[in-house]
Design a protein around this nucleic acid. Structure first.
Lengths: 200, 200
DNA sequence: CTATTGACTAATTTTGCATTTCAGTCAAAC
DNA sequence: GTTTGACTGAAATGCAAAATTAGTCAATAG
């Protein structure tokens, strides 16, 4: 079991280093040799954890989204109203992503230009998974007769869609604007959406 | 006056040709010589209408947004309810842009990669202008006591923000999805936003 | 015996340089 | 007064040699 724990720690360390290299140099200039040296393991050992360089970059993005999803689940389980949960969840999905790439000099889209098709495919998957979590909370609100009773997953997708332009994908956080502006905009959108959701 | 009309026709013809070259070859491969030959005028004459190649590409985008704004104004003046106006306007801003770049093989963002800073600056301006038109309609609804009475411009900005991820900027229309899916998503977002707007 | 490594290779990227192409100008033509 | 296309410096492109790198695997370490 020690070995398994160790293995996960190394994997995390590789992704930590990936974040540093991506933010400073971009995908192309990040080399597997650099990565191995930074983590303090042999180059071949990188391939014990990841099948390719692409897979490393993609896993790094996966990790960010996993963290977002964990945070969403935590909010979904917390002890506030369903309306407040949705508001906090929208804010979390936007700001956690903002904070995760704040130090990047290029947009993810530019950074990972070579992996675009794969990145887009994953993005679609991410949104589907996020939508599931939102849908769960919406359903709870529907059971309590607080929300309108349209298809919960479709409603969840709209919530994501309406905040997607605030995510740092094709724009850098610089280009998106100040963090507190983003926060305010997200809350405003959330407000209108929630009013619409409650309406009978 | 003949000359002035002629001048505008030539300018339009240059932008028409620009659209063809951009969609087929992209910004870099589009040359001023090609453009002049296509329009049937001398190269120097291009510069009687535009100050630079950048300006041509940017004017082409300007023209698309001008057409969107004209359409928005037309809907704003039409004889339907304010709610219906807003719904149609959201649909128009999304679908008119979709149709305008449907034949492009790259996203605008990639196509005009070299002009990104200038393009982003204009985008901001476009949204401000669109927001003004939306705000006008929202104010009318507020006067009729149909809509909630928050700052109309801020509300308008939210309407745009919530549909911005459906615009073909960093994604091609291919990547965005089928036109009718886009249409359906826009209508769903519009629906929720409008319910929220009406709520007291 | 398993886990890890880094020298190795094929493929890709970079470099340096010669050649071509092109954006923008302006004197001449219309 | 308009329009033009030959002209120019700057930028892009092509190309071959050199350098770098992703991924492998036989050797090594534990």
């Amino acid at each position: 079991m020690k070995a398994a724990v160790q293995s996960i720690e190394v994997k995390e360390a590789i992704l930590d280093a990936t974040d540093r290299f991506l933010s400073n140099f971009g995908y192309k200039k990040m080399t597997i040799d650099d990565l191995a040296r930074e983590v303090g393991i042999g180059k071949g050992s990188i391939y014990l954890h990841f099948s390719s360089k692409e897979e490393i970059a993609l896993s790094h993005i996966d990790r960010i989204v996993e963290r977002v999803k964990e945070q969403l689940e935590a909010i979904a389980k917390s002890a506030v109203s369903d309306e407040e949960k949705l508001r906090q969840m929208l804010l979390a999905r936007v700001l956690l992503r903002f904070d995760s790439v704040q130090h990047y000099k290029q947009s993810l889209n530019d950074l990972l230009a070579g992996l675009r098709p794969k990145l887009l495919a994953r993005r679609k998957q991410y949104f589907a998974e996020e939508a599931e979590i939102f849908a769960k909370v919406i359903k709870e609100g529907q059971v309590k007769e607080e929300f309108q009773k349209e298809n919960a997953v479709k409603l969840a997708e709209i919530f994501l869609l309406a905040t997607n332009s605030l995510l740092p994908f094709s724009l850098t956080t610089q280009e998106l604007g100040e963090r507190r502006e983003i926060e305010e905009k997200t809350l405003r959108v959330a407000d209108l959406l929630l009013k619409g959701l409650k309406k009978v």
